Computed example of a mutant assay.
Amino acid sequence: MAFTDWMTDYAGRDWQQSASGTVRYALVGLGWWTTDVALPAIAAAELCETTVVVSSSAEKASRIAGEHGVDYGITYDDYHEGVAADAYDAVYIATPNAFHLEYAETAAQLDKGVLCEKPMEASVERAERIVNVCDDADVPLMVAYRMQTDPAVRRARELVEDGFLGEPVQVYGNNSQPLLEMIPDRNQWRLNPELTGYGASVMDLGIYSINTARYLLRRDPVTVEARMSSPHEAFDAVPDERSSFLAVLEGDVQMVSTASQRAHADTQLKITGTDGQLELRPAFHGQCTLYASKGDVTAEVSHRSFDAVEEMTEEFDYFADRLLSEAIIYPDGEHGLTDLRIIEAIHQAADTETAVGLD
C-alpha cells in the first residue's frame, strides 16, 4: 500500500453507538481541573450534562453550581448520604487519588456509573477494592484516560492495527512539567504520599506514557527497571521528582520512559517499528498531534488537534455512550488496575535497583 493511502482523513467518533439520550453527571471534587476543564467539556458534550457538583465546602459547591448553571451544589457528606441522588446517573471522581475508593463505594451503593480519574487509587490494593465494589454492585466502571478518545491517538491505534509500523520495536515516552510553578503550594496533595500514592511523577505523569503505549500496541510490560531521585527539598516526601524506567513489553518491545514534576514542560510519545514510525507531539498536554513516517516521508495524519477540554468532551461522551448503549468499556477497572500494578513494580524496581517481573 502506498504511504499516501495511510494519510486519509477520518471521522473522530468511530466509537459512538448512541444517537440520542442524556447521562447526568455528578462531579466529585472541584479542583481546577474540574472547574476549568471538566465543566466546560461537559457543557460542550452531546450526550451528557452536569446536574450535581460536590465539594468539601458547601459555599464552594453552591458558588460553582450557580456559576455554571448546575442544579445542585452539595458537600461530600451530602453525597455519601444520598442527597440529590435522583438528579444524576453517573459520577466523575476527581479528588486526590487516596479518596477515590470512598466515593466509588458510595456511587456503587447508589447504583451509579463510575468514571474515575487516573491513577485509579493510591495503591494496587485500594484500586482492587474499587473494581470489586463496582463488580459486586454491577455498575459500570471506567478509568478516565482521555488520550484514548483523542482522535489523533485513535488514528494512531488504527494505523498500528493496520500494520503501518510493521513489527513494533521500541517506544520512547516523556512527560514533564514545572509543578511548583503551576501550583506554588509545597503542601499540595501531589507531594503528599498519603494522598498521591507511590510517588509524584510516575503516578501523575508517567502513567500517560504507560497507558497510551499499552492502548496503541495492546502489549503490556513483562519486566521493568527504574531509577528515581528527588534532589529538591519540596519533593523530600516522594521518591520520584525525576524518574526513568525501562520496560520490556510483550513481544520484546523495548520501552524507555521519563517523567518529572520539576522540569520544562514537554510531552511526547514515539513508537518505532520495522517499517515505520508514529509520533505524538505534543502527546499528553496541549494539542495532541500525530505524525507518521515511512522511509524519508513524514506527514501529519490527524485532521486537527484537540485541546484538553475537547479531549474531555470526548471522554465524557464516550462514557455516556457506553451507559446508553451498554457497549463494552475499553479502559475499564481491570485496565486501570494493570497500570497501577506496573507503577508499583516501577517503584519497587527503583527501590531495589533490580529488574522486577510482572505476571
Rank of each mutant, 00 (worst) to 15 (best):
S260M: 11
Q261T: 11
Q261L: 11
R262N: 15
A263Y: 13
A263S: 14
A265P: 11
D266F: 12
D266V: 11
T267K: 11
T267I: 10
T267H: 12
Q268I: 15
K270C: 15
I271C: 09
I271R: 07
I271A: 08
G273K: 09
G273N: 10
D275Y: 10
D275Q: 14
G276F: 05
Q277K: 14
Q277V: 15
L278T: 07
L280K: 03
L280A: 07
R281E: 11
P282V: 04
H285K: 14
H285I: 12
G286Q: 01
G286L: 01
G286K: 00
C288Q: 07
C288F: 05
Y291A: 09
Y291S: 08
S293M: 06
K294G: 01
K294C: 03
G295W: 00
G295K: 00
D296V: 12
V297D: 07
T298K: 00
T298N: 02
A299K: 10
A299C: 09
E300G: 08
V301C: 00
S302P: 07
H303R: 05
H303I: 06
H303C: 06
R304T: 06
S305I: 03
S305H: 03
S305Q: 02
S305C: 04
D307A: 02
A308L: 11
V309E: 04
V309C: 04
E311K: 04
T313H: 07
T313D: 06
E314W: 06
E315M: 06
E315C: 02
D317G: 05
D317T: 04
Y318Q: 08
Y318L: 09
F319A: 01
D321T: 06
D321N: 09
D321W: 05
D321R: 05
R322K: 13
S325G: 04
A327Q: 07
I328W: 13
I329P: 09
Y330A: 13
Y330I: 11
